[in-house]
């Protein structure tokens, strides 16, 4: 092995660069979290100090719980995210199976049609989407968001899942057919369990943009009872701009659920990205 590839000086420089960038990446999050636990005075006097017994205070969180309906927002975000991802996976897997398993007229064309949406953002059609949601009475309901996110997630889901379904062994499916299983049973009982890792990748890819979206909640569902956490914290912070304790606490409340989900799913997410699922 060549010396140049494990020179200790190079190693130190590399760690130095990575540590520096890690600090840049985490510093703002850290500052928000520690200051949300301090008194107003301490926030301004020593913004970089950790909360001590002297400066510790939960007054911001009290304001957040009194004034904002964060549990409702969180519940809305959870419903929208979970139902959308479920529909993306179910519909996406079904379509991916049809495209990868059967030969029929228009197969390639259908695949291309469904792939269009990978590159064209759904936001371009917002004006007509809003008009349609108003006409069907779905505006200000969680269903409006669920439908939009399902449509948004499908193209990439179909693309990734059909790549994976092509690798499922032909023999297994044919064995099922000889045993008299219907095509539906083959799909649900034989194929779906085998592509579970790919489904997890699709789910994690969709989770972050859906949870964090501000555009569609703002336009399709701005009413108080259907606000998502992202929109809810945006509106709350806008109202409490001068109450620094409340703003910092609201930001922390918005950061924590995502951080927890990330800690749980980060391995899946990173494996999904690095396994080349997006190539």
């Amino acid at each position: 092995m060549n010396k140049a590839r494990n020179n200790p000086l190079n190693m130190t420089l590399m760690h130095g660069a990575l540590i520096l960038y890690t600090i840049i990446a985490l510093f703002p999050v850290f500052v928000i979290l520690i200051n949300s636990l301090k008194t107003r005075k301490a926030i301004f006097r020593e913004p970089l100090a950790l909360p001590s017994s002297d400066s510790f205070s939960l007054v911001g969180y009290q304001t957040v719980f009194k004034q904002g309906d964060f549990f409702l927002y969180m519940q809305n975000s959870l419903i929208v995210t979970v139902v959308s991802i479920f529909l993306v996976l179910l519909f996406g897997a079904m379509a991916a199976f049809a495209l990868s398993e059967y030969r029929f007229k228009g197969n390639t064309l259908m695949g291309l049609y469904l792939a269009l949406g990978i590159m064209i953002p759904i936001r371009i059609g917002t004006v007509a989407i809003l008009e349609m949601m108003v006409a069907t009475g779905l505006v200000n309901s969680l269903w409006a968001l669920i439908l939009v996110y399902t449509a948004q997630g499908l193209p990439l889901a179909v693309f990734i899942l059909s790549e994976f379904m092509r690798q499922v062994s032909e023999d297994l499916k044919n064995a099922g057919r000889i045993d008299g299983l219907s095509e539906y049973t083959i799909f649900f009982r034989l194929v779906l369990p085998l592509v579970r890792p790919a489904m997890a990748t699709v789910a994690v890819f969709n989770m972050i943009p859906i949870w964090n979206d501000l555009w569609f909640p703002l336009i399709l569902a701005p009413a108080e009872e259907v606000k998502t956490l992202t929109l809810g914290s945006q509106v709350f912070i806008g109202q409490f701009v001068t109450d620094w304790n409340a703003v910092l606490s609201a930001l922390s409340m918005a950061i924590l659920p995502v951080l927890i989900l990330y800690v749980i799913f980060s391995r899946q997410l990173i494996r999904g990205i690095t396994s080349g699922a997006v190539k």
């Binding site: 985490l26 999050v29 964090n212 950061i255």
Partner: peptide, 11 residues
């Protein structure tokens, strides 16, 4: 380093 990417624009 990936943590900022998962945060929402609002945050």
């Amino acid at each position: 380093i990936f943590i900022p990417t998962i945060l929402s624009f609002v945050i």
